[in-house]
């Protein structure tokens, strides 16, 4: 096969690199003690995990009681001298071992099917062939909870989501770098009916548990607020105040142009408090809270006179 063709096929993965994974049927379970004879380091770390506690101290069924082989499959063939490097003889969860991601995930789902994972199939993580072991490492207690492969949810997610890692360092952000929030306060990485893998049915319903004062409903609603908080806010971080997507008053002017009042006016640098000291004409729309100097109830008002969000 010509080199160019070979390279092309390699690049598109069409080269046959092996058949579907399957531990041969003649493999049998050998028990944890056999595994630990060679894998004492793994055993040391594994013993501190919740899997080890569950499997060893209170297995609920024979599958769990198998310990190592509950996840890795029957290990008799792998344990035979000379065949320990044959990949098909054991289910592995690292890149080096090469067990297909689909097979790895099926092994985890044998016990962890259900709960959040009901929406895993077809989720964006599934479509991108993310393996359970891309985020989790069941071989040691790296994290306090959740058997993550790093010390925290945030560090785990940020390894792939560097864009969001950077956004959370901006001038206004939610307290994720400060250890007070994590990605899974808003997202459900195992799957969700929503496109951005939200924990709730919509963006707003994701925000309301922590921002319940915005939930209302309110007498005078601000329609784009009610529809989607992210019309005005950038949830991961912003160079603007209050996680806004743009600077006020220009953000507000992307919807408001009222010709009978001031919303559509031209606002410029001659209208700041500093410019006023040099002969400029100050405008409350360019100083401090900008439009919210007056329209402070921008998320909606429950005052009978609050139609313009001023009370």
């Amino acid at each position: 096969m010509k080199a160019i063709t070979q390279a092309f096929l390699l690049a598109t993965g069409l080269l046959a690199l092996g058949g579907a994974f399957a531990i041969p049927p003649e493999a049998t379970y050998v028990g944890e003690k056999t595994c630990i004879k060679c894998h004492d380091v793994e055993a040391k770390h594994f013993s501190h995990t919740v899997h080890a506690k569950a499997f060893r101290l209170n297995p609920r069924n024979p599958h769990e009681a198998r310990g190592c082989e509950a996840c890795h499959g029957p290990g008799s063939l792998h344990a035979q001298r000379g065949s320990e490097k044959v990949r098909e003889y054991l289910r592995g969860f690292t890149r080096e071992w090469g067990t297909p991601v689909e097979e790895q995930n099926e092994a985890c789902m044998a016990c962890h099917k259900g709960g959040q994972r009901v929406h895993w199939m077809g989720s964006i993580h599934d479509n991108n062939k993310v393996a359970c072991s891309d985020c989790h490492n069941a071989m040691g207690r790296f994290s306090a909870q959740g058997l993550l492969r790093t010390a925290s949810v945030n560090e785990t997610c940020e390894a792939c989501h560097g864009k969001q890692r950077a956004e959370f360092r901006r001038r206004s952000h939610m307290p994720v770098p400060e250890g007070k929030m994590s990605c899974i306060d808003c997202h459900s990485p195992h799957g969700s009916p929503t496109r951005p893998l939200l924990r709730a049915d919509s963006v707003n319903e994701t925000c309301y548990p922590c921002h319940a004062e915005k939930r209302g409903p309110l007498l005078w609603e601000h329609a784009p607020v009610r529809e989607n908080c992210m019309n005005c806010h950038q949830a991961h971080g912003s160079n603007h105040d209050k996680l806004l997507v743009a600077a006020r008053p220009y953000l507000c002017q992307q919807c408001h142009t009222s010709p009978s009042l001031h919303a559509g006016q031209s606002f410029r640098g001659d209208q700041t408090a500093g410019a006023a000291l040099s002969g400029g004409s100050q405008s409350p729309r360019m100083i401090g809270r900008s439009c919210q100097n007056c329209h402070s109830q921008v998320h909606g008002s429950n005052h009978p006179s609050g139609a313009r969000f001023q009370r």
């Binding site: 380091v41 770390h45 080096e96 071989m139």
Partner: peptide, 24 residues
Amino acid sequence: EGIGTRIPAARTPSGIPYNIPHDP
């Protein structure tokens, strides 16, 4: 001793290196 007897370091299926665990 790293993460494992035979494999001091390993990577996730996507190629991200696993952290070296702390000595428990």
